[in-house]
Nucleic acid binder design. Sequence first.
DNA 1: TAGTGGTCTAGACCACGGC
DNA 2: CCGTGGTCTAGACCACTAG
Lengths: 253, 253
Amino acid sequence: MGTTHLESVPEPKYWHLKTVLSEALDSEFTVGEILPNERELAARFGVARATLRQALEQLELEGRLQRRRGVGTTVAPPRMGVAVGTGQQAWPGGGDDAWRAVDSTDAVPPSTVATALEIPREQSVHIVRRSRVSHGQPVAAELLYVPHASVPDLSAIDTANQAARARAVLRELQRLQLDTQDRAVELGSARADDAKELDRLPGAPVLVVTTRFFAAGRTAALSVATYRADTCRLTFGASGGVEIHHGPERRAS
Amino acid sequence: MGTTHLESVPEPKYWHLKTVLSEALDSEFTVGEILPNERELAARFGVARATLRQALEQLELEGRLQRRRGVGTTVAPPRMGVAVGTGQQAWPGGGDDAWRAVDSTDAVPPSTVATALEIPREQSVHIVRRSRVSHGQPVAAELLYVPHASVPDLSAIDTANQAARARAVLRELQRLQLDTQDRAVELGSARADDAKELDRLPGAPVLVVTTRFFAAGRTAALSVATYRADTCRLTFGASGGVEIHHGPERRAS
DNA sequence: TAGTGGTCTAGACCACGGC
DNA sequence: CCGTGGTCTAGACCACTAG
């Protein structure tokens, strides 16, 4: 990594810096290697630390770097492909699900969720919390909202064992005939509790996958899954996904 | 685990600020309304402008705000749902496609693309540029990579009319039997040219949708589509998608 | 030209992890 | 304890848009 200072160009310094660092990462660093600290990097490039940080932020957003307070900045491995839709539709919690049921509560959902579920405001639903781990890393946290009407036969459950309660709700769900489902993906920022579960700071960028499950002409369940945007590439369809990534860009004129 | 975790963790100022602003947006502002400028807001909340900006950045990332240099900060409308997969598989450019072909060139793709296409490095391919507009706003820019082998009958085309050339490539593609396709979504930041097309600054957060098209046992084409992450919610499946969102919405008068 | 958001600086202190 | 990244300040100037 050279120490050449930056020329005065119309291009913002942090943008140029990001490009330089990106190329250095490609050619001079290996995955897992730790970079010089921010104060030294800033000095080396002749910019303020805030400017250097702006470039690092971008690279972290693109999944090239990983920064951890008290530790340092390391070169991140390529994003892992995380299968989100297998093509065929299926209830959550069935068969070889990648999720682990954490617990379940009974509470009033946010009004936006109530609207999507087509139930009255202030009506409580089952809220199942699940988490997903891939390659030894936590990659997603999910809240699954299930109206009582969708699992009418749910017997009285030992409320002390929350995980068992969660599994019971999922089991009851399987008995319904799944009509269809639709899905949406958008960018969000991690709430404090999700951030903790995902081992990130609050506000970290996440991909929010919202899935609506329809059965018997109703919205039978709603899943809001929060994936780490820095480490995950969400894949849809049969195969494992595409391995397109950063790297030298070239374009015709 | 017997210890009480009542630790009074001082919440970062920008995080608290974001919460306060978010609530204010719900209750005291209407879509399209312009906020006080950053210097005034910072003074009003008793923080430095940089701190205030950190909060605004988050809200913009979540699609709550839109900031335009020289103009001001406005309350953004809810994200628009943008259909990305209709469920059934289809070639790009067929029928009622939401895309507009811009031009086409013949060039060597990035090495990552060459790998995905299973072609040798340094081998040139057709690169079709397309753009997508929704509700009067540019929402996505696409680069479609088509190996020459996929469109062998493409006749000599008037290279002066780039748009016609692009349409010709797409037309030839339809003649192939589409076997299957897979798709991946990940977070990225807009390259300079994409940013310009999307009417955003370079580095703006985007959702990158990579689609691989298989035909005759080969990867016949590869699409890399870049969607504005601030204004778009990508929807999959038959219906229009879910309308999960932050708090109460009100319309401007 | 006036006012906005975008960039940048040179400091300071804090929270966390490892030693 | 020390070194790391995370937060915050109080300025400055630049780039853009609109009247």
